[in-house]
């Protein structure tokens, strides 16, 4: 049994090829023994059934929208009881739990400056309940609540800019990462833990069922999100952009969209070209804003 298997174990119920366990074990590799607060969602369901827990760290799930507050409470208790040295406090929450229903609790946790690492596992929709759109679903994605139809090309609105929201709260360390680069996740978590106060890392995590890809495509597709600049990997320390993952020969967004069932309609829908152009504009803007092109 390797070290990280003692913190998160095999036998969990994730779909074959799911990105979440890759993200979780890469985070735990850096934290070591820690306290985990988890929102309701995919990760919770695959790992915390009574009598079948996959966790080797103290773990708590309360309700959908309060993981940031629960983590804040754990941190406060450890402080009051003189047990801060037991380990860091980490939140794992999905994109919907973070950007939609739980944003109030997250804002409060940031604002009060709790010493908590908040990890948003971004699989870009409510995947546990069957691919309903969230604030982090990208435009053009056909979800069960924003399906592509004769008129509409899937989700119309933009992906919410959570890192900017974290930065506006003066979170001490803010970064994005991807399951395509697990060692990068571990490095970023190690760096984050050097900061006392709130930290936010958003990890792009593949959902094979919701995105409509085969398990074998999971990592290549996640990599394409980074290589097209649709998912820029960026790192801020005390508000300053300190590092980005440079991209050599940035690829057109079509290469990322094509393999995924959630975007397939864009290539024949009357509004598809427009949406693809908009996604390319977002990618170009990311590349310019963060200086991604090598």
């Amino acid at each position: 049994m390797s070290e990280n298997m003692r913190l998160f174990g095999s036998g969990h119920g994730a779909c074959p090829g799911c990105g979440l366990p890759i993200a979780v074990k890469s985070v735990l590799e850096a934290t070591g023994p820690c306290f985990v607060a988890n929102s309701t969602g995919c990760l919770e369901i695959i790992s915390s059934q009574y009598g079948k827990s996959a966790w080797g760290v103290p773990y708590i799930h309360s309700v959908f929208e309060n993981a940031a507050a629960v983590a804040a409470g754990i941190e406060a208790a450890l402080k009051a009881l003189g047990r801060k040295d037991e380990g860091p406090v980490v939140v794992f929450a999905g994109d919907g739990a973070t950007a939609d229903i739980g944003i109030g609790c997250l804002s409060g946790m940031f604002d009060r400056g709790h010493d908590v690492l908040y990890v948003c596992l971004d699989n870009e929709a409510y995947q546990n309940t069957g691919n309903q759109q969230s604030g982090l679903t990208p435009p053009g994605s056909s979800t069960t609540t924003t399906p592509a139809g004769k008129v509409l090309p899937g989700k119309v609105k933009a992906k919410k800019d959570m890192p900017a929201i974290a930065l506006a709260h003066k979170a001490r360390y803010v970064a994005t990462a991807s399951v395509a680069f697990p060692r990068d996740i571990t490095r970023k978590v190690k760096r984050a833990l050097e900061f006392e106060g709130p930290k936010y890392i958003q990890i792009h995590s593949v959902c094979v069922t919701g995105w409509g890809i085969d398990g074998k495509q999971a990592i290549p597709v996640a990599r394409l999100a980074v290589e097209t600049a649709l998912y820029p990997l960026i790192e801020f320390e005390d508000g300053q952009l300190v590092r980005v993952r440079k991209i050599k020969d940035r690829k057109p967004v079509e290469e990322y969209l094509k393999p995924q069932r959630r975007f397939r309609h864009l290539f024949k829908h009357p509004k598809g070209k427009e949406v693809i152009a908009e996604l390319q504009r977002v990618a170009d803007e990311n590349a310019k804003k963060f200086g991604l092109d090598a």
Partner: peptide, 27 residues
Amino acid sequence: NCEYITAESEFGAASILVGASAAGART
């Protein structure tokens, strides 16, 4: 040594106490 926290809502306050109580604190 009591930690006194001003929450962002009653929902947040109760949630904070769930975490604190589970960690062994009198809440």
